[in-house]
Amino acid sequence: MTMPLTFEAFQQLTGVIREQAIALDEQRWDDWQSFYTDDIVFWLPAWVDEHTLTSDPFNEVSMIYFAGKAALSDRVWRFISGTSPASTPLPRTSHLIGSDLVESFTGDHAVVNCRWHTTVVRNGRTWFYAGSCRYTLRLEAGNWRIAERYITLTNDQIETALDIYHL
């Protein structure tokens, strides 16, 4: 059941979203992972045509789909291992989060929609990725944690690489 959203709750919810983006820019990977629940579902669907996204991750292609924090940690482990040429050196990133809208709030569960824009600088090139993101957050031991991230990528094409530090 939806409850009235207090200003304090709004600040906490959007704060988590903003904090995790800042953690990516500052390459604080352990901090970043701490914002996610153990059963995190992380989903970036692919485009079918100009305006249609894939909608079934069990029958259609997603650019990224995984469930569980172990898969999230695998990704982080890989790109900081020093053995991934695409992530060594890592790019500088600048995440911008905006247009936040709290879609639902029940006291211990909330859905927040926002837009994101990441400027990427690497090896003399500058480019951006942008899109929308729907965060499903859950209150765990008094802290809001991200249980689901549904991300869309507005770009048509990936420049060399797209990893979670870009998103």
């Binding site: 970036l44 029958n59 292609v61 040429p85 695409a86 992530s87 990936i158 060399t160 690489a161 797209l162």
Partner: peptide, 28 residues
């Protein structure tokens, strides 16, 4: 089907964990 998709997505495409490393080497 799910096994097929997850194995594909894990390595391939610019968002996978294999293709980007090839792409980076091509650029180098």
């Amino acid at each position: 089907r799910v096994r097929r998709l997850r194995q594909y997505e894990e390595f391939f495409m610019g968002s996978g964990m294999g293709t980007p490393d090839d792409n980076a080497e091509f650029e180098y």
